[in-house]
Design a protein around this nucleic acid. Structure first.
Length: 350
DNA sequence: TAAGCGTGGAA
DNA sequence: TTTCCAAGCTT
């Protein structure tokens, strides 16, 4: 453990840059404005986990219009929230969002410390620190992937991730100011997303270039990461069962892939195995084509089979969903793609 | 610590 | 087309 002395030059330069160049975002207070609503900060931080700003914006607008405060979200049926989240990915976030909203409503408001925030489902070290700093003005060391990259370069930390996380956090601690820790965190993230980018960082435009230990020594190579594993390709089938302007939808089990989401029935494919189950009913299935979709850790090639005028109901739980409201069903992207294929095939096959 | 968990945009 | 990877969390 090395004794560290707080660096005052780096946060001062970064905050000056942020005062001049901060991005305006719907969940952000610009420098000098009052701190933003903790509900909006929390909601945005959950949505932004592993997700780009551009992808989040329309969902944030929709959620805050439908549920303007945490009490409204706490009172919403989980099913509605899951459907509203459809397409954004990492669906455990939506389940945890509802749980956390209900916990906050029971508490009478958001916890205002990292320790308290950390207890909410879906809130980890990063998110707790970010909310404490941005919404409550606490000094907190906020480390996301942007900060990891900036700090690894600034301090020339050569150790590979994930082992480097401890050293990176300690280094980040030495440059985090007592005041304006929220602006500092957002400035680091802006810097990482716009200047100190993963590839071809724009060091000429960087306010911290003068203090950067990696400057001139190929900063792009930092942080060092372990090589990626190859993704297996799985095969599966999904079934479009149509009757009198309705399609048969099921709800996926709460855990695992696309957990808790509405979906088309399938043959049980997973990250570990091809689908092996049979169709949910007998009938004259027509091949509507196949969709290819890549998840974080595998690719699925999903054949879409369709059946018209099905009777009686398919086996198992499900419901007949009106086709004209299919957009409201909240299908995750894989099944939305399959549905498009099935609907396109209707014209061809009938 | 490692694996599981989505999606879409950029290069 | 392929690869990378984004304001991570949970188990």
């Amino acid at each position: 453990m090395t004794a560290t002395r707080p660096d005052r030059q780096i946060p001062a330069k970064l905050l000056d840059w942020y005062d001049a160049k901060a991005r305006a975002l719907p969940w952000r207070a610009l420098p000098g404005e009052p701190r933003p609503d903790p509900y909006r900060v929390w909601l945005s931080e959950i949505m932004l986990q592993q997700t780009t700003v551009a992808a989040v914006k329309p969902y944030f607008a929709d959620f805050t219009a439908r549920w303007p405060a945490v009490e409204a979200l706490a009172a919403a049926p989980e099913e509605d929230v899951m459907a509203a989240w459809a397409g954004l990915g990492y669906y455990s976030r939506a389940r945890n969002l509802v749980k956390a909203a209900r916990a906050v409503a029971d508490l009478g408001g958001f916890p205002d410390t990292e320790e308290g925030l950390r207890k909410l489902p879906g809130v980890g070290d990063y998110t707790a620190a970010a909310i404490a700093a941005i919404a409550f003005g606490r000094r907190a060391v906020v480390v996301d992937a942007n900060v990891e990259r900036v700090v690894a370069r600034l301090f020339a930390i050569e150790q590979p991730l994930p082992a480097a996380r401890k050293a990176i956090r300690e280094a980040a601690d030495t440059i985090t100011p007592e005041e304006r820790a929220g602006d500092f965190a957002q400035a680091m993230m802006d810097l990482g997303s716009r200047i100190c980018t993963p590839r071809k960082p724009n060091c000429d435009a960087c306010p911290l270039a003068g203090a950067c230990a990696a400057r001139g020594n190929d900063p792009e190579r930092l942080p060092v990461k372990a090589p990626k594993k190859a993704k297996p390709v799985r095969q599966g089938r999904t079934y479009w069962i149509e009757r009198e302007g309705h399609v048969w939808l099921v709800q996926r089990p709460p855990e695992g892939m696309l957990g808790g989401m509405r979906a088309l029935p399938d043959d049980g494919w997973s990250a570990r195995a091809d689908g092996a189950g049979g169709a949910p009913m007998r009938g004259d299935w027509a091949d509507a084509g196949a969709v290819r979709h890549t998840f974080t850790h595998f690719t699925i090639e999903l054949t879409v089979l369709r059946l018209d005028g099905a009777a009686p109901d398919p086996a198992g739980d499900g419901l007949w969903w009106p086709l004209e409201k299919l957009k409201d069903a909240g299908l995750p992207t894989l099944f939305a793609k399959a549905a498009r294929l099935a609907e396109a095939a209707r014209e061809r096959l009938l």
